[in-house]
């Protein structure tokens, strides 16, 4: 199933709100004025765009059309175009390198969906013909290792784990050595959730990076930050701090199948320009889809065409 259809299907109820919102503001047609601008802005704020981006995006829609009468469908199209313009440069799939094993570290705050994402990624990479090893470096949360092992079984990939409470960096180190010995193509490392303002936990992440570099100075080759679509403007703080400490190379947004619109992605793209690799749209193993800017923009705004 194509990304757009799946997303649109999943998001149907959620996007209805922006779509209906635009329709409510513009009963078929309306003159572009300050009041309309403000209402558009409010709509975007409610989609987690953040005030600044919402202002800028609605201003872009109004540009050159002030005082003119515009149909609702046109406003949606313009909004979608604006969103797509911002997101197109960052919609890039997870890069795969010739380097073996390619080390992919998955980080993020608690409850964002890291373990599930690692499971889905492992499954997809495996079906793409890669030999995959998964490391359970979340040694903190109870039963995190068991959870990942179940995902490993489903995906048919080996999971390297130690007991709960073991040193996370140690698990990562052992896993990389094992992946090297096996000649695996990809090593996926799941880490414990950590709030970005917890200096001690962020230091642990730094340690994982350092330890990996002892075995392979170029590792990790990708650091994926998993963001929950329901999160609001705190996503900006998450990206900033994780980028500083863990050198995040790309983003994955999960839980886009709810009513959360993930509008904060637009703000993130503007501010950080980090690639957005994929979005999670469900709990099944194949519910991780590549991120496509235009489709996302259309799903978000309800525009029929771009």
């Amino acid at each position: 199933m194509r990304f757009f259809e799946k997303l649109k299907e999943r998001l149907f109820k959620s996007n209805a709100r922006i779509e209906q919102g635009v329709d409510a503001i513009l009963v078929e047609e309306r003159v572009v004025d300050d009041a309309l601008l403000e209402e558009l802005e409010d709509l975007l704020v409610q989609a987690d765009f953040g005030v600044n981006v919402a202002q800028r995006a609605s201003a872009a829609v109004a540009e050159g059309r002030f005082g003119k009468s515009v149909p609702a469908e046109e406003v949606k199209r313009l909004l979608a175009a604006e969103v797509a313009r911002t997101l197109a440069p960052v919609a890039r799939p997870l890069p795969l390198y010739a380097k073996r094993p390619q080390v992919i570290l998955v980080v993020g705050v608690n409850g964002g969906g890291k373990t599930t994402t690692v499971g889905k990624l492992a499954s997809q990479l495996k079906s793409a013909g890669k030999s995959v090893v998964v490391a359970a470096a979340d040694t903190f949360r109870a039963a995190a290792v068991e959870q990942l092992k179940i995902w490993g079984q489903r995906a048919g990939v080996p999971v390297i784990a130690k007991t709960e409470g073991a040193d996370a960096a140690g698990v990562a180190y052992d896993a990389l050595r094992e992946a090297q010995e096996r000649g695996a193509d990809v090593l996926l490392i799941d880490t414990a959730g950590r709030l970005q303002n917890r200096g001690d936990l962020m230091a642990e992440l730094d340690k994982i990076l350092r330890v990996l570099q002892k075995l392979d100075p170029t590792a990790p080759h990708n650091v994926l930050l998993v963001l929950d679509a329901t999160v609001g403007q705190n996503a900006l703080s998450q990206v900033e701090i994780f980028q500083k400490i863990a050198k995040v190379s790309g983003l994955i947004m999960t839980k886009l199948d709810g009513t959360a619109k993930g509008g904060v992605l637009v703000a993130l793209a503007e501010k950080f320009g980090l690639p957005i690799h994929a979005v999670g749209v469900g709990e099944a193993i194949d519910d991780l889809q590549p991120f496509e800017a235009q489709e996302f923009a259309r799903a978000l705004t309800g525009a029929k065409a771009l």
Binding site: D48, D228, V231, V264
Partner: peptide
Amino acid sequence: VDSLTGQDAVNVARE
């Protein structure tokens, strides 16, 4: 509810 939730908190709560 996660206190870091964005605007969607309202929908979640209401539903």
